[in-house]
Write a protein that binds this DNA or RNA. Structure first.
Lengths: 143, 143
DNA sequence: TTTAAAATGATATTGAAAATCAATATTCTA
DNA sequence: TAGAATATTGATTTTCAATATCATTTTAAA
């Protein structure tokens, strides 16, 4: 079994929750996702494989995936929470084109370090952050 | 007239919009705000001064204040968009305690520079960013 | 097998935000 | 100034994502 699937299984076991066929299916479809997906979009994909699955189950399962660190919530500020496969992925933030909506995953270790120091300076222990860079991509700048 | 009020007035004039008494009142109440406020909270305050003002007008005016760079939208990820006085303020990001909800305004010029470079590295021209640092404040860490 | 706990899908509900719309108010123009 | 054009307002409805509820079914434990 893939590591991520196993992690999900273990997480559920630890919480005395069940690895149901619905959760397995939702996980499998989700795990194919490139970049990120909204609950509604995922629901659409999942329904193709099993039309009997309820929308609420998709929402609930995404929460579980998020709690178990298999998925990560991303919020591009357009009113929809999206999720992206996270387990096994290295940490990254997002760079989004305001014009065409394209998003790129980015990281800068120096920024990460500075964020921690910045928090510490104010007496905080940093546990996470969300950083979205907005701008115009090469293609859109040309126009 | 204060600079911010004037900026709002000029913005409206440029767009051929009117500086109505409602907009003036909403601006005035908003400008007293420390840190940030949600539309609903602001609506509550404004109603105390003029109970006839409609909720929609508060929402609309906040959008105008945001468009004119007098206010800035902030999103702490709890489903409510808040606004903070921005005109004349120096740029800053937010450090939020996950436990007590306290928020602190922070900046690090080095981070700002690195963000720009990071975007450039991917062919983007950076036009803005949103950065929220989450952690535990000194008081909450003690417990 | 019985009992308890968890999960599901359908449906209803919530809450923020936006859209609609009739009624006013303001500005422009002849 | 009268009248036309435009903008604004407040009330209300609508939208939409997300969550809550609940009866039913499934699964695990005793």
């Amino acid at each position: 079994m893939q590591a991520a699937r196993e992690q999900f299984f273990n997480y559920l076991a630890k919480k005395k929750l069940k690895f149901t066929t619905q959760r397995a299916l939702i996980f499998d479809v989700f795990w194919q996702v490139e970049e990120h997906i909204s609950p509604e979009e995922l629901y659409g994909l999942v329904k193709k494989k099993d039309p009997s699955i309820g929308q609420a189950t998709v929402y609930r399962t995404l929460k579980l995936l998020s709690d178990s660190k298999i998925a990560r919530e991303v919020d591009f500020g357009d009113g929809v929470t999206r999720y992206e496969p996270y387990f096994g992925q290295s940490h990254h933030d997002h760079l989004i084109c305001k014009e065409c909506g394209k998003s790129v995953e980015v990281v800068d270790e120096r920024i990460e370090k500075l964020q921690e120091k910045l928090a510490a300076k104010h007496g905080f222990i940093l546990s996470g952050h969300s950083m979205y860079l907005y701008g115009h991509c090469k293609e859109c700048s040309k126009k």
